[in-house]
């Protein structure tokens, strides 16, 4: 059963991720991204990371994809025009794609990961939350502070970016 669910969610995620790449329409790409994130959240549940699955849906599906859709609608760009690819850039892209493909192939063909036995499933969901909180406020206290500072800096940065241009445009 668990294997079947893994296969299902893995296939779903991969198909939706490919949808993000191949979709011409940006709105459809955002929707595919949303579905791929739902698939990843399902995989998180299969890995017993319930809280992370919930957070992924909340932060990514709830906030990030909504923001993307908002910006796509705001900018209202027409579909991608396709001018002829320049030679050098075409070669570079093919080369990069070939490199990625070769890396993946060698990974699938030759990698040998050790297979650790699956540990016992974690306790109830509430206990897991407590564990996270304990770790965040003991072992990872400094990263939490740094992340808080990063969020503050990002907020200020966004305000400055949005404001400066307005002032420049308003100036005669």
């Amino acid at each position: 059963m668990a294997q079947f669910l893994f296969n299902l969610f893995a296939a779903f995620t991969l198909v939706c991720a490919l949808g993000v790449v191949v979709n011409k329409n940006a709105v459809n790409a955002a929707m595919c991204l949303l579905l791929a994130l739902v698939g990843v959240a399902g995989l998180f549940v299969a890995l017993n990371a319930y809280l992370l699955a919930f957070l992924l849906l909340l932060v990514y599906a709830g906030a990030v994809v909504a923001l993307f859709l908002f910006i796509i609608m705001l900018l209202d760009t027409k579909g991608e025009q396709r001018p002829g690819l320049k030679h050098a850039s075409l070669v570079a892209r093919l080369f990069a794609a070939a490199l990625v493909g070769a890396g993946l192939l060698s990974f699938f063909a030759r990698s040998r990961l050790p297979e650790p036995a699956l540990g016992p499933a974690s306790a109830a969901v509430g206990a897991e939350l407590k564990l996270y909180a304990y770790q965040l406020f003991t072992t990872y206290l400094l990263p939490v502070q740094v992340i808080g500072f990063l969020l503050l800096a990002a907020m200020l940065g966004v305000i400055v970016i949005s404001k400066k241009l307005d002032a420049a445009e308003d100036a005669p």
Binding site: A2, F6, L43, F108, S111, L113, E115
Partner: peptide, 10 residues
């Protein structure tokens, strides 16, 4: 369960 290898490959 699916193996670790499967997850990392995905």
């Amino acid at each position: 369960h699916a193996t670790l290898h499967a997850y990392v490959a995905l």
